[in-house]
Amino acid sequence: MGALTGLKILDFSTLLPGPYATLMLGDLGADIIKISAPDKKDIVADYPPYIDGCDITANQAWLGRNKKNLFLNLKTEKAKEIIYKLIKEYDIVIEQFRPGVMDRLGFGYEDLKKVNPKIIYCSLTGYGQTGPLKNNAGHDINYLARSGNMNYSGKENIGPVLTNMQIADIGVGSLHSIIGILSAVYFREKTGKGQYIDISMFDGLIPFHAMEGASFLVNGIEPQREKTRLNGGSAYDFYETKDNRYLSVGSLEPKFWENFCNCIELPELIKETVMPENVKEMKEKIRKRLLEKTLKEWLDIFEGKDVCVEPVLNMREALLEDEHIKDRKLVVDVKVANSQEKIVKQMGTPLKLSECPIEYKESGYPLGYHTKEILEKLGYSEEDIKNLTETGVTSLYEK
């Protein structure tokens, strides 16, 4: 029994934010049905490579884990009939269309609330359901830029720097959707009332300003690139080693700073602190010193010294070789759906629950795979399903 066994969720989302939210909810035991359009590609689910010998991509095998999926053309009246039947049982919805789209299709909160008054309905968008930007298209880079975070990120001489991490998508969109849904579930348990949840990836980036944002709202001083404690204005930074690898140095507190300076044999820097006025000169001394040895040589020196220094690992080192990641089971072996014995490695869900641990039943299936099974459970006959297929309401999965 999973922590969320009994929760039943209809997932109308695409790309990464919504699917990752329901991936975590499914890993925790929720029953997920993913709704997809039979005639539209999902650039994340369809992102190559395919798993050898299978008709499923690595991304769909991961994001679709512990889910069923259904093909429906939501623009048809018959699709509305099917969704209205499902919503009597699957009483939590997450959708990722622009504001108003689900309303026009007849699947908005007010529409589904009439069918099931206890429905919990989460809308995940870039800029939210209100405000002048609500209908704007956007991606992670746009939300990071408009939120102000990138104005003091990066380097003085080149400006903002891409990270290849979906900060707004996962760090805000996915996780805030989960928080909102589970908060609404708790509220419904206490009151019997469902509700509407408005999650904006842009909104959630405002608190990412953290300490600098709190300070600015008090003193009005704009943070600048490479001028704050955490953006390059202190010794807190990345440094190259002799073999063209990199170390991350996070020695902020006095005891860590002292240990670090002693390890690199520059004890005279201790009194200057991690953020002196001549920070550029100090960092140049650190850079020159760290270039004298290889990454491994420095790691051997720092071993057990309590310095807040770690290597910049490549993906193979992190996901396949790192002993801590192995111990924490952050990469797991999962049975490939619809195969006899094939196993694939996937990134696990980073939650540890003592009484109801995460269960990785099997990878995701190709989109549309469970269409016939779901329709049959709703009472549709073979002839009904054939008619729904012929009229473009749905499409059956074919290998």
Rank of each mutant, 00 (worst) to 15 (best):
M1H: 15
T5K: 15
F12G: 08
S13P: 03
S13L: 01
S13C: 14
L15H: 13
L15S: 11
M24H: 08
L25K: 10
D27E: 13
G29Y: 09
G29N: 08
I32H: 10
I33Q: 14
A37W: 12
K41L: 15
A45W: 14
D46Q: 14
P48Q: 07
P49H: 12
G53M: 12
W62P: 01
L63R: 07
F71V: 09
F71K: 07
I82C: 06
K85V: 07
I87C: 14
Y90K: 03
V93Q: 05
G100M: 05
G100P: 10
R104S: 12
Y109A: 07
K114A: 10
N116C: 13
I119S: 00
I119K: 02
Y121H: 03
C122Y: 01
G126R: 02
G131L: 07
P132N: 13
P132C: 09
L133I: 03
L133H: 11
L133N: 03
A137Q: 07
H139F: 15
H139Y: 15
A145C: 15
G148E: 14
G148F: 01
N149K: 12
N149F: 13
K155C: 05
E156Y: 01
M165I: 15
G171Q: 07
S174F: 05
I179M: 03
I179D: 03
I179F: 03
A184P: 02
S200I: 06
F202A: 04
P207C: 12
A210G: 01
G213N: 10
A214C: 00
S215H: 05
F216Y: 15
P223R: 08
L230M: 06
N231S: 03
A235K: 04
D237A: 10
Y239H: 08
D243P: 08
N244R: 13
S248R: 09
V249W: 01
G250A: 14
L252Q: 10
N259I: 02
I264Q: 08
L269A: 03
L269G: 08
K271V: 02
E272A: 09
T273G: 00
P276K: 12
E277C: 02
E292S: 12
K293N: 13
W298E: 11
G304K: 09
D306I: 00
V312G: 01
L313E: 10
N314M: 04
E317L: 02
A318P: 07
E321V: 01
D322T: 06
H324R: 06
K326M: 04
V332R: 15
A337S: 14
N338V: 10
N338P: 06
N338C: 13
N338M: 11
S339I: 08
K345V: 13
P350R: 06
E355Q: 14
E355D: 14
P357N: 13
E362L: 11
E362Y: 10
Y365G: 00
P366H: 14
L367H: 09
Y369N: 10
I374T: 09
K377F: 02
L378H: 08
I385P: 02
I385W: 00
G392N: 12
S395K: 15
K399Y: 11
